[in-house]
Simulated assay, not measured.
Amino acid sequence: MTSIYCKPLSRTGLVLACCFWLAGCAGPLGLFGSRDSAPPFRDPAMSMQAASDVVMAGKTSKAEVLAALGPGVVVKFNSGFEVWAYRQKPAGAAASSAEFVVLFAPSGIVQKTRIRPSYAVHEE
């Protein structure tokens, strides 16, 4: 025997399932797993090396980096240090992403930068 509460619950479940499906489509890889995304820097033509040339250890502030490169992925530490990472998506599935990493001292001035180039991934 079915109760009168069964229909509203099944509709609610259907609505929730649709919401989760749509949320999954809006995820970081999009509807069909596309890896194409926005460039890592505010200026789409800027290369990793050009970004490295703009940011100078001991001189450049957070505000200057934000103005020159745009927002990156930020990791804050309890010690007051921050890391900003700018990742460039690989052109093919068989490559790792290149990244430019900036370490800020607690004073807000760049302490160190690093470029990690992309490498081909060999599957065995």
Rank of each mutant, 00 (worst) to 15 (best):
1 M>T: 11
1 M>G: 14
1 M>Q: 12
1 M>S: 15
1 M>K: 00
1 M>W: 07
2 T>W: 12
3 S>Q: 06
4 I>V: 12
4 I>S: 13
5 Y>L: 12
6 C>E: 14
7 K>G: 05
9 L>E: 05
9 L>N: 05
10 S>W: 10
10 S>K: 13
11 R>N: 08
12 T>H: 06
12 T>W: 03
14 L>W: 05
15 V>M: 15
16 L>G: 09
17 A>Q: 05
19 C>P: 01
20 F>H: 09
21 W>S: 14
22 L>G: 09
25 C>G: 15
26 A>Q: 13
26 A>N: 12
27 G>E: 04
28 P>H: 10
28 P>Q: 13
30 G>F: 14
31 L>W: 15
31 L>M: 11
32 F>T: 13
32 F>G: 08
33 G>H: 02
33 G>P: 06
33 G>V: 10
35 R>L: 15
36 D>F: 12
36 D>L: 10
40 P>V: 07
41 F>V: 06
44 P>I: 04
44 P>S: 11
45 A>P: 02
47 S>V: 03
47 S>T: 14
48 M>N: 06
49 Q>I: 14
50 A>V: 00
50 A>E: 13
51 A>F: 00
52 S>L: 05
52 S>F: 01
54 V>N: 03
56 M>V: 14
57 A>P: 10
58 G>S: 08
59 K>N: 03
59 K>S: 00
59 K>P: 04
60 T>W: 03
62 K>R: 15
62 K>C: 01
62 K>M: 09
63 A>N: 00
66 L>V: 05
66 L>D: 13
67 A>P: 04
68 A>W: 01
68 A>D: 09
69 L>K: 06
70 G>L: 04
72 G>C: 05
74 V>G: 05
74 V>E: 08
74 V>L: 14
75 V>P: 01
75 V>N: 08
76 K>T: 12
77 F>N: 00
77 F>S: 10
78 N>L: 14
79 S>Q: 07
80 G>D: 07
82 E>P: 01
83 V>N: 05
84 W>F: 11
85 A>D: 07
86 Y>F: 15
87 R>T: 15
89 K>P: 01
90 P>F: 04
91 A>Y: 03
91 A>M: 11
92 G>V: 12
92 G>L: 15
92 G>R: 14
94 A>I: 07
94 A>W: 08
95 A>I: 01
95 A>F: 11
96 S>P: 04
96 S>N: 12
100 F>E: 02
101 V>I: 13
101 V>T: 13
104 F>L: 09
104 F>T: 02
105 A>S: 13
108 G>H: 05
109 I>T: 10
110 V>T: 01
111 Q>T: 03
112 K>R: 11
113 T>C: 00
113 T>D: 02
113 T>Y: 04
113 T>N: 06
115 I>T: 04
115 I>Q: 06
115 I>D: 02
116 R>H: 02
116 R>L: 09
116 R>N: 13
116 R>W: 02
116 R>K: 11
118 S>F: 07
119 Y>D: 08
120 A>D: 12
120 A>I: 09
120 A>G: 11
121 V>M: 15
121 V>A: 02
122 H>T: 08
124 E>P: 15
